[in-house]
């Protein structure tokens, strides 16, 4: 929530003058996250867990939709098309196919949930690809990525806890969550060794 809130805040027209909108954020990743949250939270309408659960689902969808709108429509001029080029079809298609093959239950909601779990684990790839192409990440982008990466990494601790105390585990969520966290690891290394020391992330050319 902090990461997504940061992004909306930094892209919000009230908060920053249009020219200050942070560059270096991948619009493609933001679209993938929006698709992820919509596909996963369709049960908002059918399955009430708690106020917190519903509130966070609404926040995730609303904030990522706002970010996509601000980046790709309102501040389209500042969006860096040239460096945000990873083909998302090559991420969406395999996730969709895998969701049809490996899932807990062959029902529309379950398939969409599974697709969303697989998609989230690779949704950051366009962003990491863009950082490698631009060769650097703005500090605020680094904070955003760190928050986004640690969100799923912390879930791994929760899954371990629930395995030992509730004897509950969801293998699909765990495998995808581990893959997702591993994808962030090289970024975590850069974040901790550089950004926290006040430096910017500049990747070797």
């Amino acid at each position: 929530a902090a990461g997504i809130g940061l992004l909306v805040g930094m892209n919000c027209p009230k908060a920053v003058k249009p020219r200050d909108v942070i560059t270096g954020i991948s619009g493609r990743s933001q679209i993938l996250f929006l698709v992820t949250y919509v596909a996963r939270y369709l049960d908002l309408l059918t399955n009430f867990v708690s106020v917190y659960n519903t509130a966070m689902k609404v926040f995730f969808i609303a904030a990522s939709a706002a970010t996509v709108y601000l980046m790709l429509f309102k501040f389209k001029a500042t969006y860096d098309h040239n460096h945000d080029t990873l083909r998302v079809e090559f991420l969406i298609a395999p996730c969709a196919l895998l969701a049809l093959v490996v899932n807990h239950d062959f029902t529309p909601l379950e398939i969409l949930w599974t697709f969303s779990i697989y998609l989230e684990s690779v949704a950051i790839l366009p962003q990491l690809f863009m950082v490698s192409k631009t060769g650097e990440a703005e500090t605020i982008t680094s904070h955003y990525l760190f928050a986004l990466g640690s969100y799923r990494a912390l879930y791994i601790l929760n899954w371990i806890y629930r395995y030992y105390f509730d004897n509950f585990f969801d293998l699909i969520a765990i495998v995808a969550g581990v893959v997702q966290t591993v994808l962030y690891c090289d970024f975590f290394y850069l974040y901790i060794t550089k950004v926290l020391k006040g430096k910017k992330i500049v990747l070797p050319a």
């Binding site: 399955n47 708690s50 239950d105 929760n158």
Partner: peptide, 10 residues
């Protein structure tokens, strides 16, 4: 297995 009803995670 935690199908749709049992999902309580984000």
């Amino acid at each position: 297995s935690p199908t749709t009803e049992g999902k309580d995670e984000l």
